[in-house]
Simulated assay, not measured.
Amino acid sequence: MMQVFKTSGVCAREIKFKINDENIIEEVEFIGGCSGNQSAIAALAEGQTVEYVADKLAGIECRNGTSCPDQLSKALKDLV
């Protein structure tokens, strides 16, 4: 089942993602925003552990003190 995270302060409106029982990210989809960058973020995150991706992306800034990668990190940290 896809989880949905409502973003704040970025172009993307929400992030949908699926995590398996072993805490591996199976799928990531950004709704709204720059599709090229978000496709790249999703491709790099898929197949990685929640903890690894959340730690790597935390604190990356674009505007408003956050970014789409940072928002994905926040979404994943809400799970752990």
Rank of each mutant, 00 (worst) to 15 (best):
M1L: 13
M1E: 13
M1N: 12
V4T: 14
V4K: 11
K6E: 14
S8V: 04
V10K: 01
V10G: 00
C11T: 04
A12K: 00
R13S: 15
K16I: 09
K16C: 10
F17W: 03
K18F: 02
K18T: 13
N20T: 05
I24L: 15
I24E: 04
I25M: 10
I25C: 06
E26V: 04
E26L: 09
E26D: 08
E27K: 05
V28I: 11
V28W: 10
F30N: 03
F30R: 06
I31V: 15
I31F: 08
G33S: 10
G33I: 09
G33E: 12
S35P: 02
S35R: 01
S35V: 10
G36C: 07
G36V: 06
Q38C: 15
A40Y: 01
I41R: 05
A43R: 11
A43M: 14
L44S: 06
A45V: 12
E46R: 00
E46I: 07
G47W: 05
G47A: 14
G47L: 11
Q48C: 09
Q48V: 01
T49M: 15
V50R: 08
E51M: 04
Y52N: 12
V53Y: 05
V53A: 02
V53H: 06
A54G: 06
L57N: 02
A58V: 00
A58L: 14
A58T: 12
G59C: 11
G59L: 14
E61Y: 03
E61C: 11
C62R: 03
N64V: 04
N64H: 13
G65A: 15
G65M: 14
T66E: 02
S67E: 05
S67H: 09
C68K: 00
P69T: 02
D70Q: 07
Q71M: 15
S73F: 09
S73V: 08
S73M: 07
K74Y: 02
A75M: 02
A75V: 02
L76C: 11
K77H: 12
K77G: 01
L79W: 02
L79F: 07
V80W: 04
V80D: 10
